[in-house]
Design a protein around this nucleic acid. Sequence first.
RNA 1: GGAGGGAUACCCAAGAGGCUAAAGGGGGCAGACUGUAAAUCUGUUAGCGACGCUUUCGAAGGUUCGAAUCCUUCUCCCUCCA
Length: 310
Amino acid sequence: MLKLAALVGPTAVGKTELAIKLAQKIGGEIISCDSMQVYRGMDIGTAKASPAQRDLVPHHLIDIAEPDLNFTVADYQRLAQQAIFKLNGSGRIPMLVGGTGLYYQAVVDNYDFFPMESLQTIRAQWEQICSDKGIEYLFKQLLAIDPAYAAKVGGNDKKRIIRALEVYDLTGRPFSSLQNQNKDTYRLCAIGLYMDRTELYARIEQRVDAMIKEGLVEEVARLREKGYDLSMNSMQALGYKQVYNYLEGLLTYAAMVYEIKKETRNFAKRQYTWFNRDKRIHWFNLTEFSNSEIILEKICDLMEGQLIRV
RNA sequence: GGAGGGAUACCCAAGAGGCUAAAGGGGGCAGACUGUAAAUCUGUUAGCGACGCUUUCGAAGGUUCGAAUCCUUCUCCCUCCA
């Protein structure tokens, strides 16, 4: 069985740093599990590992797409699986490190993604119908073809409703019947990092200030000059979206900073919610450890027990 | 000094005698999540031993079967004329 380590947790807990030390100790390589670090030119706002850090331990799935490409979970899963396979072959421990819950789950539980690409034309069609007849109409359509999924998503989640309708158009099958997963594909050792809420929120605010000091505004301005805009998934990233609006004159500087901090806090909460659901994750409260060496030891022991001495 | 306007829950803001523990928005908190996921959506938000009870609409009195809504006084804020 393929081995897989994972290190997850909310933004700004300190995953990157700890992951590097851990990788060095257990002979691992890092597979970034982050939906925004895949994009080139988005460095400061996504808090990518620095070039120096990447020299210490190989990092995979960072800087693999241009920001105008709409990278998807399925793309991510495929590439991550390739990396996991390769690393297992060479005796290295693949370490999934990041905070994108869906990407993590899609890999770890090996979601089935049927081979059909989503078609921009179909989505555009449904979008059009939605603006003509209203979302209630779309919801009725969904209710007719996939009542179970309709009940689950409710009548307001336009993105999910359209996706489900699109999948039906593509496959002729209800979306809910296609959502299979394959747990136990890997010998998994998952670690979750967390911190008392107030401490994490304070770190988030400090980090946002630091990003701005390091040139986040300039980074976004560069992307904007290249023609990347808010219609692209990449530019929906936290920080980028708000700075973009600031550059457009839609937000004041103060409002921009406030919004980035607030939405990052909200995001961290959503990450907690997501990862809390996965009962395989072993959680470590960083607030309780004044010495990061101790926690590193503990995590190391756990990983060695579950992945190496087996 | 004179003339008006206003004080509503964490914040902004509706309400103008019973249907109001009080619309809506923001924020907070909780949850969901299978090809946009740093996206998107949902629930909840006075207190409590909670299908009931207690305390809320600047403060204190009063009118009324019944008040955030009407009257009186007081406190604070704003605008305008001096």
